[in-house]
């Protein structure tokens, strides 16, 4: 554990809590992509199958259980409890265009051709693009509530901080996971446009609204 990794995890945790608070306080899931949340649920479920096979630390186990639990609760809020506020018309990204290539890639490019390892690789690749339905939804509606922007900023920062963690671990421990690093770079790049809008608008007290 190093400071970048810890800050990354805390940023990830903050993102999830911000999203839950937004939904709970406003009693609404408007502007939130249910498809992205389903992809994140797939990511966590696939990646944390190792809860059953290897124990790393109490911290590690608690975080995994929290991530899995909250993402399914988020899906419950979107598709059941606050279904009336869910904007399905604008959540029209075709997720099969992500799942199929990512699944194929996980089969072809992995550390070891073993079932759990392929599933882990699939989760890493899928996570890198799982935010696309959410970003697509914002580009379609042309706006994002400020609280949704905070959520996305925290979620994007998490992987960017992991990149710092991997640079640190490479020099400090000789640790290098090419699959995680490449996927992490892709994931962070996808947020760059959003980061720019966040810094130039949200931080100055304005809401994100794109020209029609």
């Amino acid at each position: 554990m190093n400071i970048f990794r810890l800050c990354g995890d805390m940023s990830h945790l903050a993102a999830i809590i911000i999203l839950l608070l937004k939904m709970w306080k406003t009693r609404s899931v408007a502007g939130i992509s249910g498809k992205s949340q389903i992809l994140f649920a797939t990511v966590f479920t696939a990646r944390y199958l190792d809860l059953f096979t290897s124990f790393i630390s109490i911290y590690n186990t608690c975080m995994k259980v929290f991530f899995i639990g909250t993402v399914y609760f988020t899906i419950y809020l979107i598709y059941m409890k606050f279904k009336a506020t869910y904007d399905s018309n604008h959540d029209s990204f075709r997720v099969e265009f992500l799942i199929v290539p990512v699944g194929g890639l996980a089969f072809l490019v992995n550390h070891e051709f073993a079932p759990l390892e392929i599933i882990w690789t699939f989760s890493i690749y899928l996570e890198s693009v799982a935010i696309l339905p959410q970003l697509f939804m914002i580009s379609k509606t042309g706006e994002a509530e400020t609280i949704t922007s905070h959520y996305l900023f925290a979620l994007g920062s998490y992987r960017a901080l992991y990149l710092c963690n991997w640079i640190y671990r490479y020099y400090a421990e000789g640790f290098f996971d090419l699959i995680a690093v490449v996927a992490g770079v892709v994931q962070t790049i996808l947020y760059c446009d959003f980061f720019y809008l966040y810094i130039t608008k949200v931080m100055k007290g304005k809401k994100i609204s794109l020209p029609a």
């Binding site: 190792d50 759990l116 882990w120 963690n165």
Partner: peptide
């Protein structure tokens, strides 16, 4: 279940 490489990150 096959041998699983340790992935210590989240």
């Amino acid at each position: 279940l096959s041998e699983f490489l340790p992935h210590d990150e989240l």
